[in-house]
Design a protein around this nucleic acid. Structure first.
Lengths: 233, 233
DNA sequence: CGCCGTACTTGATTCAGGTCATGATTGGGC
DNA sequence: GCCCAATCATGACCTGAATCAAGTACGGCG
């Protein structure tokens, strides 16, 4: 991991931007922001580490995850270019990261100083509102996750995940998993074997067609039905 | 459910207060706030209902929950006097409640108009910061919930819950469940039967002593061990 | 291009927790 | 204080997903 380069306006503007911060304030944060380059497999921070910086993913892919003592890994979120993360640590009494963060691909991040960001937010209610909107969206996402974990079985979780992907991507019947099946399994709190079997079963039923990371939704009618709790037939 | 009374300053000041709002602003919100009285078993709102108001629980107890098609219920949060809820809806494009809310005991709430609150927040960065701090704490709590659901078994979830209760209450070895075991089960995403068995097993092992809603932690040594994944012996 | 480690698939088996059933106990409301 | 319904406890049984195991396919790197 290196953190020598200085970020240019471009670096940030190229992408969806540290989305809570309006145009006028970006200049100031950038003054002390740093570019962080990180290799595949490297860890950006561990759960419990003091959180002095918040991040924007410019390029690459990372996972936020928690580990069970037995080594089981639950992926909390996949970070794609344009994602910001760790903002909530700014407001905690104890500022430390609540999860581990590791690069799944070589990645380039912009690291903002937490104190700088707080200082800026103090002077800009609009920025606060954008951040609050982001927190609200994230809270609702967590609610969806909790519902999935406590009320849905493996098949339903997979189906809902695929529908969500389909919606995020161009909404065509063809979609692509954003990462390896192993990590998708970690995201859905399943073992890789189970995910594999669910895919096999859905393919068996003629509902989807899987080839590597590409998935085609063949029978969107029945596919939707499954979401409402009907059997796989 | 009745919503005729006008709330006095007292009603709100008596308790922990709409905690994101500093002293100076309370007067203004209160001008249009209403008292809502609700009986045990009544529903305050359903998932999907338009969210025009946010709430402070003054007295009583409520549950926020989601339902599976088969009737299974996951309790997202228990609301006690002093809790505020539904604040995040203020910032959603589509303002609607993401969960159901039902009174577990007859309750008295203060209902604030969402638009009024937004208007107030616009003029007070301190209030924004308090609210952002609350969102951050809540996000972290959700993270803990997700970890519990995806990486911990029934016993571990129960033990961690009891430890959390012990900490919230006076940290003595004696604690009291805040609600019925049925609802505690719903909070931990367990069936009541399973919770009952876990309690029985822990009591069997001499680790706790259960009598109704009162629980005494007998062997805090071993009790803590369980948290680290060791067997119940 | 070929090698090796990782990802993936598939089968056999196990087991934690859910489901169903039956009493015992409790507590809210008249 | 009594009564009915809801809560709670416990046993028998079932099942979905984890675990264990073994073989195949893939992809990154020399």
């Amino acid at each position: 991991m290196t953190s020598t380069q200085r970020p240019s306006r471009q670096h940030v503007d190229e992408h969806r931007i540290f989305s809570a911060l309006p145009e006028t304030l970006r200049e100031r944060v950038l003054a002390r922001a740093e570019i962080v380059e990180i290799d595949r497999g490297e860890t950006l921070f561990h759960e419990g580490d003091p959180a002095r910086r918040i991040f924007l993913c410019e390029a690459g892919q990372l996972k936020l995850y928690r580990l069970a003592p037995n080594g089981n890994e639950k992926i909390i979120a996949l970070l794609q270019p344009g994602s910001t993360f760790a903002e909530a640590t700014m407001f905690m009494e104890e500022r430390n990261y609540p999860v581990n963060c590791e690069a799944l691909k070589a990645s380039r991040l912009v690291a903002f100083d937490a104190d700088d960001c707080v200082a800026m937010l103090r002077e800009d209610v609009d920025a606060c509102f954008k951040l609050m909107a982001m927190f609200s969206r994230r809270l609702r996402q967590r609610l969806t996750d909790i519902e999935a974990l406590s009320l849905q079985n493996a098949t339903l979780r997979v189906v809902n995940y695929l529908l969500q992907l389909q919606h995020q991507q161009d909404a065509s019947e063809q979609l692509e998993l954003p990462t390896s099946k192993k990590h998708v399994a970690g995201l859905l709190a399943l073992q890789p074997e189970t995910l594999s079997r669910v895919f096999a079963q859905l393919q068996e039923g003629g509902v989807i067609q899987v080839s590597g990371r590409r998935i085609r939704i063949l029978d969107s009618e029945r596919f939707n039905d499954i979401t409402y709790g009907l059997a796989i037939s």
